[in-house]
Design a protein around this nucleic acid. Structure first.
Lengths: 232, 232
DNA sequence: GCTATGGATTAGGTTGACCTAATTTGATTG
DNA sequence: CAATCAAATTAGGTCAACCTAATCCATAGC
């Protein structure tokens, strides 16, 4: 009996597991309505599906108190996440996709590719650790790095930061980020942060030393590493 | 309004269309039971599905007399065939799959890839005309070459033939063909054909001039071009 | 021209995954 | 501590795609 040899899960099941995994990462536990919102499905449908999934042992459902993945559910979720991120990386590196167009394609393919194909792609890519949006790729064995990143809104004024991760959810947003020069790996100094959820001003460390103003909402979605403090 | 922009068809619908296309190519018209056999689905289920598909205009159903694709149905079927064959070619050329293992993978992926991805793969491959089993790949516009090939069982004794196409259906069979040295492009002389659906003996034109005996059933599935007549 | 036979269809049922409308529950708050 | 409200669940229904069992129909053979 091999490791990854459980029966294939339905497309829908995989979508639920992945969504729940991602909600849990933020909220600790996944509320029915968060799942419903993430998947754009009516709440009662989620209740029903959650019941089925907990009967098959993929998650634990405490009525009126949300849902948690079981060990087996988490393993399956991470398999889907791995597939998704390897696919995004492959499409970007090998087939010329831009970072704003891979998500949709990977969203469909993640339910159709075999583990074998994923591993072949991973191998062809040299077993990458991050996808094109900077998200860590879980290993085949289901281990995932927890990146320690600060949202741009938390980077202190005066320090130099590097952009390490962005959300892949909204293609529009990704195109906008590109247009600002905010690609993975760019470094900038945080010049100013307006209070009351106001915008953040950054100046790139590269040649034209351009400044950009980033709105608060957007800035919260940018995962950064602080490289150095300017003054002390 | 773009060319290939109809709404996505369900996985099931695509499977039916492709199967019907392939049965039509052989039988002229597709009987309910042939479809049922090809898809491993009970006959009454096929009747039901066929009714739905003819309501959406993808095929014409004359009760008790089988089914034919409409123009729109044929177009969709050819799109699926193109996806399948491009995928098989890509997996073989770029990801190290063997010709016996691509079919299953492509069978799932053909329902998930976008036209855009297919065209990117086709481009990366240099717009191939044949898949790894020698089957012609329909163009983006839905044009497909009708290969004029003779089954090995029809190649006259004494002539030199080249293997051009094999069925991708049975992985076992493909592995067996490889083991006999029967890969696409090999040339051989037909040495003998036993009567009463008996085996065919061939001798390769290459270095060790090996002989192989091929059973009748298998020989019917090998598409050949006759290169030259030996005597006259 | 009638009847046997097998292929096709109708009848009726299941399952997964969704929906809306109505009701219940847990948590908050005056 | 009762009233309230939003969140969650139950109730009841739809739809696609399958199933088995029973019936129907075209044709081939006599």
């Amino acid at each position: 009996m091999e490791v990854g040899s459980e029966d294939r899960l339905s497309r829908s099941t995989e979508d639920y597991l992945k969504a729940i995994y991602e909600i849990e990462a933020v909220d600790g536990t996944a509320a029915t309505s968060s799942i419903a919102e993430a998947l754009a499905i009516a709440k009662p449908s989620v209740t029903g599906m959650v019941k089925r999934l907990s009967e098959t042992g993929l998650l634990e459902h405490t009525p009126y108190h949300g849902v948690q993945l079981t060990t087996s559910g988490r393993r399956s979720a991470l398999r889907v996440v791995r597939r998704h991120r390897i696919l995004e990386t492959y499409l970007t590196s090998k087939l010329g996709y831009d970072w704003d167009s891979v998500h949709e394609e990977a969203e469909r393919l993640e339910h159709a590719v075999s583990d074998e194909l994923v591993e072949r792609m991973a191998l062809a890519l040299g077993n990458p650790r991050y996808d094109p949006h900077g998200a860590p790729i879980p290993s085949k064995e289901g281990v995932i790095e927890e990146p320690v990143l600060a949202p741009l809104t938390d980077v202190p004024v005066g320090s130099i930061a590097e952009l390490r991760m962005v959300s892949d959810r909204d293609a529009e947003r990704l195109r906008y980020l590109s247009s600002l020069g905010l690609r993975l790996g760019v470094r900038f100094e945080v010049i100013a942060r307006q209070p009351f959820r106001g915008p953040v001003t950054v100046r790139f460390t590269g040649r034209p030393f351009r400044e950009q103003i980033v709105g608060y909402e957007l800035a919260t979605t940018l995962g950064c590493v602080v490289r150095e403090q300017e003054v002390g």
